[in-house]
Computed example of a mutant assay.
Amino acid sequence: MIRIGHNPNTNMLPMFYYLEKEHPLLESVTAEPTGHNAMLAEGRIDMAPISAFSYGEHWKDYAILRNLSVSTNGRVGSILLFSKVPIGDLEGLTIALTNASATSVNLTKILLHHYYGVTPGYLTMPANLPEMFAKADAALLIGDAAIQAALLRPECYIYDLGEEWHKHTGCSMTYAVWAFPKSLLAEREEEIMRIYDLLLEAKAKALGNMDDILRTCQMMLGGSLEYWRDYFAQFNYGLDHDLVLGLEKYYNQCFELNLLPSRPVLEFWPKE
């Protein structure tokens, strides 16, 4: 049995909605991205859609499943910086960072330091916008917490980090990749291939039946069907050449800002 990380956020529904829950090869473990990052590193799960940044930390040990990611080429809609002041005025101020993300936390640091030339202070907190604003001048939220906060239309500046990244680099942004320890291949390659096929089948079925996904999101968080249709129109759940280039750009900038100790090399599986 392969212990697989299950991410409950709406942006991951196209990966999990049609994945067979009671498959004899699968044991699902639900957590936010940072939870899966730690679980995979500690050997408590075998495979997960981890933060892209976490792959960068463990690239020597992990392999990435081909054709699977959570990416956008511009606006993402659920990785949002809420700020009391314009983003360029955050010099010396404090930003509360969600404790549910690694990729977006470091994307925030890249954008602020590299493109806006500001150096704020950072603190990490659970995702709750009022509590974050009580202690900080800006707050980073991701996933459903970001969507729920934005739907309430708070009186502040809201910056979409996918849009910001694309504006400054012209690149796509990959937030999560499916990864597993390369050491598993020695004994469990056939099982991993079967799980990989299940993931591709579930994704294809979801993308061909998006109305089911949209209605489920509406029941979970509210909003109109038009809102959710527009939201998912931004996403790419594959991992083509252009997305890989954007991911490499992100890793290069993480390395240059000393956010990663080494420059990651992407290793994909199955081999071509």
Rank of each mutant, 00 (worst) to 15 (best):
S54P: 01
I50H: 05
L25N: 08
Y157N: 12
L243F: 08
W228T: 10
R44I: 03
G223K: 04
H113L: 05
T34G: 01
G74R: 07
G222W: 07
A138E: 09
G77L: 12
I142E: 09
P270T: 09
R3L: 14
T103A: 15
L19V: 10
E248Y: 01
S101W: 00
L140Q: 04
S83L: 05
D242L: 06
K203D: 06
F53R: 02
C217Y: 03
E57A: 10
H113R: 13
Y159G: 11
T10P: 00
V76Y: 15
E201V: 13
Y237C: 04
V118T: 05
D240I: 02
I95S: 07
L184H: 11
E267M: 12
L141Q: 12
V70W: 07
I147T: 12
N7G: 02
R44A: 13
F268L: 12
L25I: 13
G43H: 06
T108Y: 01
D240Y: 02
S69K: 06
L90Q: 08
T72Y: 04
I95M: 11
A41K: 14
L199H: 06
Q253F: 03
L260M: 10
I213G: 07
G121C: 13
P120K: 00
Y18C: 08
G223R: 02
I64R: 05
V105I: 14
F235H: 07
G117M: 04
M15V: 13
C171I: 02
Y237P: 04
G121Q: 15
E189T: 10
V76P: 00
N67P: 02
R263G: 01
G143C: 03
L245C: 06
K203G: 07
L65M: 15
E131S: 15
N128L: 09
D144Y: 03
L112P: 07
L260R: 11
L81P: 01
V105H: 00
H168D: 06
R229V: 00
E42F: 07
H166S: 15
S28N: 05
E248H: 01
F268V: 04
R153W: 03
L140Y: 09
A176T: 05
P120C: 05
Y55S: 06
N67G: 07
R263I: 04
S224W: 12
D144K: 05
G143F: 03
E248P: 00
R3Q: 13
L199T: 04
I142Q: 02
R194V: 11
A202Q: 05
L68G: 04
Y175S: 10
S101A: 15
A150V: 01
A31E: 15
D46L: 03
K60Y: 02
M219T: 11
S51P: 04
F255R: 08
L93D: 07
I4F: 12
